[in-house]
Nucleic acid binder design. Structure first.
Lengths: 173, 173
DNA sequence: CTCCAATTGAGAATGATTCTCACTGATGCC
DNA sequence: GGCATCAGTGAGAATCATTCTCAATTGGAG
């Protein structure tokens, strides 16, 4: 079976190369410098180490959804001695403390991003892969309602809409 | 971690032993007997084997969201010789052909169910992996609305709610 | 019934993630 | 500043779900 090959091809998010100024998302309402990271680490009652700062830094840079492997590689550039254990351990801690959001999809390695302050969901075009982000309070409320019906205490959710974007609709005919 | 142990204990739906008539869900609008299963297998251009029938049967019986491990155990009762490979292989094929829907959550093993004809979404416990199904027309309408706002023609969606189930809430204190 | 490609199953392999444990280094105390 | 202590680190082993390999078996077309 070749579906495995396919797995690696998933264009989850385009890799951003270097200089471009697409730092839009994370810097919207937040200022994340070394000082903020230190604060973040202390908040969790952990010691500030260079490795941890480097990991946070790699999450902060360009790309938004990175795998542990990618974090490892990014950090390795500055810290050739860093180990997987450290990366996984810290990512887990960050996730448990809500500073980082873990996205798991299919059987793929988990992807991490600094938790965005404003929650959003995705509307993805099955034709071209374009992703629109949206926010809908009404839907969120209904979700809470559903959870309550089952006695669940809601912690998070994933809402992904798939469809055909206007451009692809025309193209198809 | 012992969460693995917990998985096997998940009381998602009572295990049906033989005679009782709690065949509600899957037989709503569908009649799934050996004949239907054979048909299903042939549709995929595969050979009908006892193992495959047994796997389908185990999916059809009482419980709705089973792990590959559980399927393996269920089938083992009738087929002590069955191998993991066969279970995983066939579950994958079924999933690829849309006859079975795979639900993956956190780092837990994937869970499978015969694809239901009426769409529903999932409410998953992050503590034990238990899955509840729900249907909410209102949410679906809002999704359509969002898609329309972006000019998208909606084709499908995934809505997964994560939370802590009543049992796990108590366990935690 | 025969034959051969499809299927099977045992065990090995894989890939992501976690654990172990000896070593290192940050922080508080003097 | 110097030192003790204990959290933090990293190399590699361990784990767990899942997939692959391949020799032996079997469904089903002819």
């Amino acid at each position: 079976m070749d579906s495995n090959k396919d797995l690696t091809k998933i264009p989850s998010l385009p890799r951003s190369h270097g200089e471009e100024k697409l730092i839009q998302r994370h810097d919207l309402g937040r200022q994340l410098d070394k000082k903020a990271f230190k604060q973040m680490i202390r908040t969790m009652n952990l010691k500030v180490t260079d490795q941890r700062l480097a990991i946070l830094d790699s999450l902060h840079g360009g790309r938004t959804h990175v795998t542990a492997q990618e974090v490892f590689e990014l950090v390795s550039e500055k810290f050739p001695e860093i180990g997987f254990a450290t990366v996984y351990r810290f990512l887990r801690t960050l996730t448990e403390n809500g500073f980082v959001t873990e996205v798991r999809m299919g059987g793929f390695p988990a992807r991490y991003e600094l938790t965005p302050q404003s929650h959003h969901d995705h509307l993805t075009c099955v034709g071209c892969g374009k992703i629109c982000e949206f926010e809908n309070h009404h839907i969120e409320e209904l979700q809470q309602k559903v959870a309550k019906q089952f006695g669940f205490q809601l912690t998070s959710h994933v809402l992904e809409l798939y469809g055909i974007c206007p451009a692809c609709q025309k193209r198809q005919v």
